[in-house]
């Protein structure tokens, strides 16, 4: 490898194309889900343990802001990750792989992801 090749380390001058934005968000939402799963499994265990435990989880989700926000964040990440995942399966079938249709697929995923995040918010609040 040539050591004198041009290197641009100024990230602010690099603009990600929409397909790259869709891709990095798929990755970030996956990491959010990995963390959010801890809260979901913990809540499942508590909600099943007893009627009081169930009541505690209901209270946490309905009236404790930080917990509600974590659940919303996890649901929003799940919504986008699911949509982007379905897009991956479609691309495995050869759909949406060209430059134009790839950009369109990214746009659709992002729009649906935002819509699902809003719906999850409406559902919780």
């Amino acid at each position: 490898m040539k050591t004198n090749r041009p290197v641009n380390m100024d990230l602010t001058t690099i603009r990600l194309p929409i397909t790259a934005i869709a891709s990095i968000l798929h990755r970030i939402s996956g990491i959010v889900l990995f963390v959010g799963t801890a809260f979901l499994i913990w809540a499942l265990g508590l909600s099943l343990s007893s009627a009081q435990g169930f009541e505690q989880v209901s209270q946490l989700i309905s009236s404790v802001f930080w917990f509600k926000f974590i659940i919303w964040g996890t649901l929003a990440a799940l919504g986008y990750h699911l949509v982007a995942g379905v897009r991956h399966l479609l691309m495995d079938l050869g759909l949406g792989e060209t430059k134009e249709s790839g950009a369109l697929g990214s746009q659709i995923s992002l729009v649906v992801g935002v819509l699902l995040a809003i719906l999850a918010g409406v559902w919780l609040w």
Partner: peptide, 12 residues
């Protein structure tokens, strides 16, 4: 996660 789920499901 796996252990916690097994306990949640079979522990109640």
């Amino acid at each position: 996660y796996l252990i916690a789920t097994v306990r949640a499901l079979w522990g109640f």
